[in-house]
Write a protein that binds this DNA or RNA. Structure first.
Lengths: 110, 110
DNA sequence: CATTATCTATACAATATAGAATAAATATGC
DNA sequence: GCATATTTATTCTATATTGTATAGATAATG
């Protein structure tokens, strides 16, 4: 395990989106899912750049989808999280959890 | 609120360490706390660079401490989280929480 | 002034961001 | 059935911000 096996903040969010979307995860739905759940605006370029980086690192894989019977549009590139990616999100999640647990800090519902 | 008001992954960890340490938070103890709780090795330079950046952004403040009766050593620079910093950690925490909640993923105890 | 603890400066690598350009598929008018 | 418009999606390019390591400066004590 290399020195840097934690997900960056946005990488973390993206991987969580993939886990949520299961077999419906591609660039556009990933962006939607994040914007929907976090109210955060996300540029599509940021999504793809991060997905590419995650794929290079072996945290996700992608494959082309077949054309769908909808109005047109380029074929989709679907993503899913690998075992290595699941391990990374686990590590990141736990590090944060250990730093948070027992903390006398009241989280507001902003 | 600017477009980027989320803490980076390491920034997030550092702010949590400050909240834990309360009035005992300075470079060395911050590093210790993180290494202790997460098993992650942290270089002291990384800690200071991040603290400086957080201070520039108004998420933390720092002040010099008095010399202690121990064997020597330079005077400490103590840090604490500002209201703005608390808001940022809240936002970051909630975004992650919303992306995580209801997720059918079993976190392992790695 | 030697020893110890801490901080500062600097350089470099990795991650995050935006927006424009390109590609692939279907629909439609002729 | 061909040309072209429309829709959906991805890729490319450029830049800013964050994360990391190392080396060395500074301050206090005895």
């Amino acid at each position: 395990m290399s020195r840097r096996d934690y997900l960056g903040e946005f990488e973390h969010i993206i991987v969580l989106a993939l886990l949520r979307l299961e077999d419906r995860a591609y660039g556009v739905t990933v962006r939607q899912e994040i914007e929907l759940r976090t109210q955060r605006e996300v540029s599509i370029g940021a999504v793809y750049a991060t997905l590419d980086r995650l794929e290079t690192k072996g945290y996700v894989t992608s494959h082309r989808g077949e054309p769908t019977p909808e109005r047109g549009g380029r074929s989709k590139r679907f993503f899913r999280v690998t075992a290595k990616g699941a391990a990374a999100v686990n590590r990141t999640h736990h590090a944060l959890q250990r730093m948070t647990e027992g903390l006398g800090f009241t989280w507001s519902h902003a």
